[in-house]
Design a protein around this nucleic acid. Structure first.
Lengths: 240, 240
DNA sequence: TCGCCTTCTGCTCATTGTGAGCATAACTAA
DNA sequence: TTAGTTATGCTCACAATGAGCAGAAGGCGA
């Protein structure tokens, strides 16, 4: 950052500055599939394409605060687990002007995805996440019928990076729990992991590992309404 | 980012924009200790404190390009492995004006650290990296005599995050090789890992794991000048 | 020259984590 | 009551890890 040497010689206020924005990758699960919230662009440039919700950063506003504001005002979601992802600064990424965008990743519990609408013009799109090795292959957004959605600007890159980050943090952080309701079964937890990884996991190893780790605690209750043996309900135990 | 809806209603060019800068965390090894390059601030604010080298982002300049320019012009280092780290956007982080800074991490081979001076006003400071669990404790910069250096602005946070990132990527990426000369012994490689982690590693397990992974190849040569059995020299094998 | 010292290198052994499969438990629907 | 289905707990083989040991390979001092 600015040494005084620099500031003495040059006045950065005199130079043109890039505009600064935040873009949100809002990820959740809808019927077991990884899902992202998108808006459809109605005007050029890139009219008809799908974009991540975003907004400009105010002059007296923290980056995190800008992300929370966009979450609140554009997605109509009160709060979510927000995490800075990466900053995209290619020169021609927006054809109208130079915009540098700080991408944020937000994880939504299924409830927030189900209760969309209500003032938000966002649409839920499934994310096709082929396994293609740990590095992750091409990620794309698709409709429920499997048709690919064209993403605007560099938003496909942002989405791909978000999924990659999610995969990386999956087994050492508590991201999976942010996508689940308070009480969940081991099968549900494994489904979340498999949806994010895009690959099946060994069932007994997953159970053992998860239980041995001691980060979830049994509630004593069981799921209801199944046509077979009901599974134990667990909750995330933050204390351990 | 900017939906057309937003642009139609508001003209972001009419609003005051934060200044955008890049800051570089230049890390290397000096005599087996993790080391960071810092400049001493000569003028207020924060005169006398130590800062990371940085500079403003030009209006037609990529973030990566700005980081490379600072590396070249301020540190006088031709090239290094640069990687975007995080973007710091607290409102009061610089008292003069609103500056949002994209931090970059760069790894320097020992040669670049030794050949300092020559037009660069940077000083090498050791980084004290207590282990304090995987999460990493407080990281601080110290002189060779162990005196703590006061860092300017939020640069201590940036440095701490850089070390954390380095630790996280250590065992699945090739960051360690970027800090070593082309030919190195297994012991040197282990020293790098231990310096970054701030904790000792099991020797035979480290050897086995490293060799089994197949990412390094023996050169056939051996180190010279030791008072004991010389170790085999290896090189990083990018092809595997 | 000949032991002595130090580190490298390759080996074994016990412990731990993982992949895979099987038997039993627990529930619904017919 | 029985068939069907999934949960749960178990065993077994295999791989990875931590720890230690013996021999190899160099310099050094007597």
């Amino acid at each position: 950052m600015s040494e005084s040497e620099f500031l003495a010689g040059y006045d950065p206020a005199a130079y043109e500055r890039p505009a600064l924005a935040v873009d949100l990758v809002l990820l959740g699960l809808r019927s077991g599939r990884l899902t992202v919230l998108l808006t459809r662009r109605s005007d050029p440039p890139q009219a008809g394409r799908w974009a991540l919700p975003g907004g400009f950063v105010g002059i007296a506003e923290t980056l995190d605060a800008a992300a929370e504001r966009v979450l609140r005002d554009k997605a109509r979601i009160a709060r979510a687990r927000l995490e800075q992802l990466y900053t995209f600064g290619a020169v021609g990424r927006d054809p109208r002007m130079r915009i540098v965008s700080v991408a944020y990743l937000a994880l939504l519990p299924e409830r927030d995805l189900a209760g969309l609408g209500a003032g938000s013009d966002l649409t839920a799109a499934s994310v096709a996440v082929p396994w293609a090795g740990e590095a992750g292959g091409p990620v794309s957004a698709v409709t429920e019928r499997g048709e690919a959605l064209a993403l605007a600007f560099d938003h496909a890159d942002i989405l791909a990076l978000a999924v990659l980050r999610l995969r990386g943090k999956l087994d050492y952080s508590d991201v999976a729990f942010a996508l689940l309701p308070e009480h969940f079964t081991l099968r549900q937890l494994q489904d979340v992991h498999e949806a994010i990884l895009g690959a099946p996991l060994n069932k007994s190893a997953f159970r053992r590992r998860t239980l041995d780790r001691g980060r979830i605690a049994p509630t004593g209750a069981r799921e209801a309404g199944t046509a077979f043996r009901p599974a134990e309900l667990y909750r995330f135990d933050r204390s351990r």
